[in-house]
Amino acid sequence: MPKTNPEMWLHKYGDYLYSYAISRLKLPELAEDVLQETFLSAMKSKDNFKEKSNEKTWLTSILKRKIIDLYRKKYKNIETSMDAKSMFVQDKFMYGSWNAEDAPQDWGVAQGEDWIGDEEFIKVLDKCILNLPDKWRFVFMMKHQEEASNSSINKKLGVSESNIWTILHRARLQLRECIESLWFKTLS
């Protein structure tokens, strides 16, 4: 008996598609969900698939769409997390200056110096990215991985374009602080 399509796809491209989904979504549960959605959608549209085109490319393009769908779906359902604790003074006096405990510490690394060949560092960075509030992470990932323009993020996630800069800013503030506390403070 010939194997059904999804089983064959799973066998041939499962690991590749899963790795791709993990690189986008970071969380195994989400990656697995999106893989399932992809196969379901592929089964429905397999008649449109032309033998000539590459099956892997075809499945990957469906997967990409499903990932964006997931971002969008999740994005709508997450409570806004924009009011995370600010790293800057909110009182009128000294308004907008760094809070004493949040001001960046000098890492003592010169620019261009090879300080990060370390796999451990990647793990820390990954962890810090995962620590970002979901909403920020989705915008951050779309900006970096799909190289999406603010207007396309706006269209897909419904975030206003000016808000996107604010989200990226907050995400990067938090990333830097997270790296400082997990990497540099534990080293010294």
């Binding site: 690991d15 899963y18 790795s19 690189s23 300080w115 560092f121 990647i122 990215i129 970096h144 991985q145």
Partner: peptide, 18 residues
């Protein structure tokens, strides 16, 4: 400093996760 590293980390490099 972290910008380059972020870009590299987030790029999908066919690193296979089974």
């Amino acid at each position: 400093l972290i910008n380059d590293k972020i870009i590299k980390t987030l790029k999908f490099d066919d690193k296979e996760i089974k």
